[in-house]
Design a protein around this nucleic acid. Sequence first.
DNA 1: CGGATTTGACCCGCGC
DNA 2: GCGCGGGTCAAATCCG
Length: 211
Amino acid sequence: MENYHMLFGATTHAQPSSATTNSYNFMATAGTGTSGGGLHDHDRGQHSGHGGRSSSSFFAELSNNDSKDDGAPVAADSGRGESSAAAGEVDRPAARRKGDKKERRPRYAFQTRSQVDILDDGYRWRKYGQKAVKNNKFPRSYYRCTHQGCNVKKQVQRLSRDEGVVVTTYEGTHTHPIEKSNDNFEHILTQMQIYSGMGSTFSSSSHNMFH
DNA sequence: CGGATTTGACCCGCGC
DNA sequence: GCGCGGGTCAAATCCG
């Protein structure tokens, strides 16, 4: 079933401007009967084995409350200092059109248990950065969808306290079909379940998230 | 050779 | 106003 496709891509069902009000709301569907709330983490004891590299823990949808207008849809960057030779006009931040709110960039976060950071969700990602965050000793990786015109970003972070846990945050919606048929992933959804208590502030309170 | 990754620098928002 | 923390870019490098 293309459920997983919908979850990640979330094409349009998205949320119109009304979404601004809620800072975040959980969408979870998970419970395909099996989970329901059981499944403890002791399962992580098993080492990868082979193909089934991971299982999801929770899935949440976050909306950009954006106080200022979410950073542009596409070129979110505003010129850095780099005065690139030539060109002579590297578009300064002036290009920022705040007038039209545009659609907010939906954010989806879910946590998975896996030995590998890079979960193959069927899309092709290009890593564009890596940064160390304060609460975790493991660096956070930033990826972007390589498809042209598709400005979807995702960041992957591994928890230092739980090496088996990887938090993946998707931002934006894919404007193109998935590349691979990832039937393996559907198995993951089966085990997916939600953990409540997650706030929009990842950085500061992440330590008390699941503890 | 082309595309993805690496890695340091830069930028920006926010808190103090 | 400055410093911190986080996010992004881009040149160089690596890998297929």
